[in-house]
Amino acid sequence: MRYGARSQALTGRQLAARAAVLGLVGGALWLALARMEYRWDWSVVWDYRAQFAAGLELTLLLSLGGMAIGMALGAVGCLLRVSQRDAVRFVALLYVELVRGTPLLVQLLIAYYCVAPRLGYDQPRIIGMAALGVFAGAYVAEILRAGLESIERGQTEAALALGLSRWQALRLVVGPQALRRVIPPLTGQFVSLVKDSSLLSIIAIAELTKRAELLQASSLRVFEAYLTLAALYLAITFPLSRLAARLERRFTPGD
């Protein structure tokens, strides 16, 4: 498809081509599985539905909570990052670089095994949510900063020339314009966070991935457990990705 072509304006030929691709991929999968003579047993998944639902709920809760913390930390980080003082900017830079330069898995291990025990804290869910928040905050800070910097300097100058303070210029003029531009990338960041939250399974949090692992361990139905897991993540991320893409088009300047 051409870049920028609108998905809602698919032609009949494009639809047919897409159906063909799906058919080919599905057929190949089906053949591969048929050759293994795998005997499907979806009843274990159905029997386990309550646990999947609970896992899904926890995954959403932890992701939303993590994103909320991330937005707060990101907003602070972004403000520090655009400060007039070098030392203040450096604090934010340090945070962003440390977090973005290390894997989330490593951050979770440090949070759970190094930091939390020293604080005498053993609430894996809270630790996990906080760790997700710290992780997301670094990315959110950069998204917000890029948003602010995408607004031309003349806007700030016009606001200052009218007698607004720097804070008012940010709050009333630059911020609202930047906000529109950061909604799509923030939505994308949330999609990433939902997927990344699967790593919380390693610190004994019974979110979605952990539930699938437990089902697999007890039933030994690898395919059913993990394919269902993938489908459930897709059920959250796919609509959000579509939404992000729509917002992107909606807010792209000149569109």
């Binding site: 031309e152 003349g154 806007q155 100058e157 016009a158 606001a159 200052l160 020339a161 009218l162 007698g163 607004l164 303070s165 008012q168 003029v173 609202p176 314009q177 529109r180």
Partner: peptide, 20 residues
Amino acid sequence: PPSLRAECGMVFQHFHLFPH
């Protein structure tokens, strides 16, 4: 200070109206 800037109107070559 902003209060002093407020007494000075300015018009720019490229307008810089607030588009939002």
